[in-house]
Design a protein around this nucleic acid. Structure first.
Length: 807
DNA sequence: AGTAGTCGTATTTTT
DNA sequence: TACGACTACT
């Protein structure tokens, strides 16, 4: 194999080691077996005609529209097996992209079933982000990073933005870092670099400072040698666009490309794919426009709707045979989703018809407590009929709904598990520990450094950190380095200085041990010597023991990695904790996290206007929002294999206030023939607003009149008008905020300008200078940027030049 | 430096 | 209502 230009010889060492040579298949290999058989290879048996077509059409662009439960993953994995078996490509020449690590993992497992465990050869099977990191590590310099760059999580990101907003003298209450992060996320999802952000949008933040903040943020990232999640894709796109030769190499390399959940791709991901697909057209995208539920985080349903247009000569294959649900469930789901416009259109069908299949049920409850009680009752009833709790799930629209169920199930002693709660890596102690590791591996990781300098408490308060920050800023060096310089002088009081010295010394020592000790040993040493474990051991709070356990768990989970750096990379990309619970338990989760799963019985509570469809979705995105909510409903219903049970309440507590609620419009969009109105299990349901009327669910349904005469819509319009008025007059508020901070900022600006131009120190011996703390003095000696000064009042001190002014 | 009290806000979530 | 974040006080 020829090594493509631009790649060093470390380019995929896996190639030779793991790829079966296509020309001479090994005995027992799948290709060999397939060839020997000279008939339909066994991996193709059991596929329906459409699935088979989707597997075998490997040349040219293919769009597989795979409805819920139509064997999507099977097609995807079999297709890969087919490409390998026919010798069309080697494992390392296939690019297979998923959205979640879970999906990637599942795919790997299933493929290993086909190709006998050698999935390691599938070097390019992974999430968009992990594949981008892989590419980026190789060519980091070309986008201004070092290959050791670290990946920021949302928390770091927000902290960084906040610093920038504050440094700009912008009111960080009015313009929150979180809001900006969301905005910037939107830009990155659309692959917009700071200069490409549309003027109007850039102006929408902090009265025209949006672009500037974005620019500064990116500058800071490159100084920090870090990238956020959006950058991973964005940098690779920049790379591909600016390095045609490099792009060609990748185009040549990826002979077959597969994308899972195509309806969830954003514009950046689409562009990324397009660049690669320019080289060869063997792109296969699998998805379902009806299951697009991530529009709010940048997914473009348009990508899938436009596929045929974007990839000329595309074959479109529809998978409509459903292997999951009963005909009633499918009919209900299909009828519901048919109310959406702008679909590619699929009609699911099944051969699964039996007389005793349950209809989709709709039940009313007085309030959420009764809802939880009656669902609990049903679960217990099913359980006593021999149904497993594992086969049941409660899917809610918003996570606050979960609590009511948890409360009820605790009272009943019913086992449950909540899917998608706070994740392992998000816990404070894990993040702290990781920050220690990050600082060891990457001394320039300022955000990590900041996080733990004073954790556990070392008496390094605001004042000390401010000095470190000032120095780091003026010299454009990492905090760690600034701190180290500061320690060599007498800028700091002895106590903080010694504390700081110790921290830095620790990190230096640990760094030196990186190669000599195993990374797990070192990790333990770090947590011990830093006093971090000690801190939790002394902590008498209820959570402390659990936190120590988590830390142990963290160390244990490091074992399967080769190095600390490798582990950190994994952790920043792979954020899921897969705690496979062996116990029988009902799952409680949001509709969003239910996508891709299936259960015999699915409970769908909270089908009320305002909650589902969610008011905010309607307010913010109007029609498109409503359609996405409807798709969410579709996803919910299609998770059910045998029983789908919908609930709505007449009263619900919203922000602590009781509000009467109206049944969801989605209920009226279900086909009456497949739905039964079930009696609530307890006897005081149906009182008040819960009665059934003309629209089967509610007589006084204002939503039936005009589609957007809804209260929410009107509220949305008012809000928008208010916004418009505000942003026009908002300039004044901004001005005053800016003026207020002008003073200190200018001083800072002078300081920065001075120290940069003066570096290395151009003070001369004997010069008279002023220090803000020590007063006037004369320079006695100079080493680099460190000055020894004889102060008139404070005596002889060693200080850094940027802290003094000429006098 | 730690705590109490106040204020504001309040979907969906992966990487 | 309820929680988290930030302030101000001790």
């Amino acid at each position: 194999m020829t090594v493509p230009t631009g790649f060093s010889d470390d380019w995929d060492p896996m190639d030779r080691a793991f790829d079966p040579a296509p020309a001479a298949p090994k005995t027992g290999g799948i290709a060999a077996r397939a060839m020997a058989a000279r008939q339909v290879p066994d991996y193709l048996t059991g596929l329906n005609p459409e699935q088979k077509l989707a597997v075998e059409t490997i040349e040219g662009p293919v769009l597989v529209l795979a409805g819920a439960g139509t064997g999507k993953t099977r097609v995807l994995t079999t297709r890969i097996a087919h490409i390998l078996a026919t010798g069309a490509a080697r494992p390392s020449e296939i690019l297979a992209v998923t959205f979640t690590n879970k999906a990637a993992r599942e795919m790997k497992e299933r493929i290993s079933g086909f190709i006998g465990g050698n999935v390691e050869g599938m070097a390019w099977l992974g999430t968009f982000h992990s594949i981008c990191v892989k590419i980026l590590r190789r060519h980091a310099e070309l986008v201004g990073l070092k290959s050791s760059f670290s990946i920021l999580d949302t928390d770091d990101q927000i902290r960084l933005i906040k610093q920038i907003i504050q440094a700009e003298g912008i009111d960080d209450k009015r313009w929150t870092a979180k809001a900006f992060a969301g905005m910037m996320d939107g830009w990155k999802n659309r692959a917009l670099t700071p200069d490409q952000v549309p003027e109007g949008e850039a102006r929408a933040f902090a009265n025209g400072q949006g672009r500037k903040i974005y620019e500064e943020y990116q500058d800071r990232l490159s100084v920090l040698n870090a990238a956020d999640f959006g950058d991973l894709l964005l940098h690779v796109i920049t790379l591909f666009k600016s390095q045609p030769d490099l792009l060609k190499d990748y185009q040549r390399r990826f002979r077959y490309m597969l994308v899972d959940e195509y309806q969830d791709t954003n514009i950046a991901q689409y562009l990324w794919l397009r660049l690669l697909a320019q080289g060869n057209p063997n792109v296969c995208c699998v998805g379902d426009d009806d299951q697009s539920i991530y529009g709010w985080r940048g997914a473009e349903v348009d990508n899938i709707l436009r596929f045929e247009h974007d990839f000329k000569g595309a074959t479109v294959i529809r998978l409509e045979r459903n292997y999951r649900s009963t005909s009633h469930i499918l009919a209900a789901a299909s009828h519901l989703i048919s109310h959406n416009e702008g679909r590619l259109g699929k009609t699911l069908f099944t051969d699964f018809h039996e007389d005793d299949h349950d209809l989709v049920s709709v039940t009313s409850a007085w309030d959420s407590e009764e809802e939880a009680r009656s669902i609990g009752d049903e679960i217990e009833a099913l359980q006593s009929n021999g149904h497993k709790l594992n086969d049941m799930a409660i899917l809610v629209r918003a996570s606050f709904q979960m609590r009511e169920f948890e409360d009820r199930f605790i009272t009943l002693g019913l086992n449950y598990r909540v899917i998608g709660g706070p994740r392992f890596y998000e816990r404070m102690e894990i993040r702290d520990a990781l920050a220690y590791f990050r600082c060891t591996v990457q001394p320039a990781d300022d955000l990590a450094f900041e996080r733990i300098v004073n954790t556990p408490k070392r008496g390094l308060g605001e004042a000390t950190l401010k000095l470190v920050h000032e120095l780091a800023r003026s010299q454009r060096i990492p905090l760690m380095q600034a701190a180290s310089q500061l320690c060599q002088t007498e800028e700091l009081k002895p106590k903080p200085r010694n504390a700081l010295k110790e921290v830095i010394g620790n990190f230096e020592r640990w760094r030196a041990q990186l190669d000599s000790l195993s990374h797990t040993e070192l990790a333990e040493i770090i947590l011990d010597e830093s006093g971090y474990t000690e801190m939790w051991r002394k902590d008498r709070s209820a959570e402390a023991p659990g936190r120590l356990d988590n830390l142990k768990e963290l160390i244990r989970s490091m074992e399967e990695f080769e190095s600390l750096a490798g582990f950190l990379e994994h952790i920043s990309l792979v954020m899921d904790r897969d705690s496979a619970d062996a116990n029988d338990a009902v799952s409680i989760m949001t509709l969003h996290s239910a996508k891709g799963l299936e259960f015999d019985t699915v409970f769908l509570p909270g089908w009320e206007e305002g909650l589902f469809p969610h008011q905010r979705s309607l307010d913010e995105s109007g029609r498109a929002g409503l359609e996405e909510e409807r798709r969410l409903a579709y996803v919910g219903v299609t998770r059910a294999k045998k029983r789908a049970k919908i609930w709505f309440t007449s009263n619900r507590r919203v922000h602590g206030m009781w509000q009467s609620s109206i049944p969801s419009r989605f209920l009226d969009e279900l086909p009456p023939d497949h739905v039964e109105i079930a009696e609530p299990s307890s006897n005081y349901g149906g009182y008040g607003g819960g009665g059934y009327g003309a629209s089967r669910f509610d007589k006084a349904d204002p939503f039936q009149s005009g589609s957007y005469a809804t209260p929410g819509w009107q509220r949305a319009q008012k809000a928008r008008q208010a916004m418009d008025g505000f942003s026009e007059g908002g300039g004044r508020g901004y001005q005053s905020a800016r003026q207020k901070r002008q003073g200190p900022l200018t001083i800072e600006g002078e300081l920065v300008a001075k120290s940069v131009s003066d570096s290395p120190s151009d003070y001369s011996l004997g010069e008279r200078v002023f220090h803000i703390k020590f007063g006037y003095g004369a320079i006695k000696s100079i080493e680099g940027n460190k000055l020894t000064i004889d102060f008139e009042k404070a005596g002889v001190k060693k200080v850094i030049d940027s802290f003094v002014e000429r006098h």
